[in-house]
Design a protein around this nucleic acid. Structure first.
Lengths: 237, 237
DNA sequence: TCGTCTATATAATCATACAATATGCTCAGA
DNA sequence: TCTGAGCATATTGTATGATTATATAGACGA
């Protein structure tokens, strides 16, 4: 995952504290130690700590006020769709409950995105989509498949010409990525969903929004059924 | 709008630079002046400037590296769904194009959210929804209506029990808010969409996902037709 | 021509000092 | 006893200077 810049010291501090908060190790309402104390405790300067705090504050995780100190904010104020917050969440605790919510997001906007793409895609975007599809067709193992698959879905989103959708996609899909790969790995034939992809591709090529939506919908429903284990080759435990 | 904390100095600096970047006044790829120079130019200390830079960097707007300096990143790296980035965008330039994209997001999510709400809402959430609906019913002017309307839609989102959807809603809806009010103001009868809201409410009460989805869908289509100026009370397919 | 080393500019980090700001307490006055 | 103004205090906010790390570009030698 590794979204936050851990190259820099403040990035490292941000990550450390972020994970501690998102994982629930630091409860909402709880007051953090004083800047000076916390800085000493983490063995960094107050400057580095403060820059980290600034970022966490911008993500809605903490709130700092003079005299009263810095407190962890309640979950409803967290920027849930922030890439880092999402990544920290996935890193700390991947409860089935949360993965399901991510899946719901995907189920909602991918079919809609396919419909939009069918309406608004241009020639170049269609070309990208075709390239991704061909790559899926030609893939020889799950890794190649997974990469091409990701590119396919990204190409669909890009073809919507809506940067907000693209952004949402990259956030959700990145967070879902790790679980995503398992899906393909689990099934005996990792190309089982290729026909669905073809339908989506064809519908977008022919500019048929409703067809594209339905095809994508079916693909996702099937993929979820596959992930939740209603499928052959149960490998786990 | 006013999302970013302008109470603090670094918040102010963040906002200033953020707007300058998002509005295109500072082009992607362009290098900002050196920390020291920029700090002097903006009449703040390097500390304040750096903390602002840290936040902008976390939002994907800029990238700072030793020796090479700080540069504005390309748009595709921007965290488009960040509340501040969105607000800055709306503050600087509200091109019809962008408002339309926000509307698309809403069109995708709200019907789906209504369906989820019909499945998963609990008694307390239904109560909230009813309260909002009653408030809409009882409203005596566009302002009261707009507030109750917002609460209604928020209640629907909350009833999905998916914090990711709630977060997306609050982001999109807040950004759309200002244009939203105009919709009600434009039409002769600002309560024209009340029947739609009733349908949505009833469907969620009766736990009828598909009905809720369709009702919400119709409401939004009608609302958009109304905003684009195609006359009130006339549904354009 | 190529790679390595060195100089240098810039951000990154640190340490310290001072200012601004809430909070809660004290204490006068009714 | 209650009330409110104001002061003491703790904490974050801001400023400044110094030092370190890092990446670029240019010099140098093979």
């Amino acid at each position: 995952m590794r979204v936050a810049n851990a190259r820099n010291l403040h990035g490292h501090v941000t990550q450390q504290l972020g994970i501690r908060i998102v994982s629930g190790q630091l409860q909402p309402g709880e007051a953090l130690p004083r800047e000076e104390a916390l800085a000493e405790q983490m063995e960094v300067s107050r400057t580095a700590l403060r820059e980290a705090m600034r970022v966490l504050s911008a993500k809605g995780l903490v709130e700092a006020r003079p005299k009263v100190g810095t407190r962890v904010r309640e979950e409803r104020y967290w920027h849930q769709l922030d890439a880092d917050v999402l990544a920290w969440r996935c890193a700390s605790m991947p409860p089935a409950d949360f993965v399901q919510k991510l899946g719901q997001m995907r189920e909602i906007f991918e079919p809609a995105a396919a419909a939009f793409a069918a309406r608004r895609r241009d020639a170049a975007q269609l070309k990208e989509l075709e390239l991704a599809y061909r790559a899926m067709e030609a893939s020889r193992n799950t890794d190649e498949w997974a990469e091409a698959d990701l590119q396919f879905h990204e190409a669909v989103l890009v073809a919507t010409n809506n940067e907000l959708m693209i952004s949402l996609f990259s956030i959700v899909e990145t967070a879902l990525g790790s679980f995503f790969v398992q899906s393909a790995r689990k099934s005996r034939d990792f190309k089982y969903s290729l026909p669905y992809h073809q339908q989506v591709f064809e519908a977008i090529r022919r500019r048929q929004p409703e067809v594209a939506r339905d095809a994508m919908q079916k693909m996702i429903v099937d993929s979820r059924a596959n992930m939740t284990g209603k499928r052959p080759t149960r490998k786990s435990a």
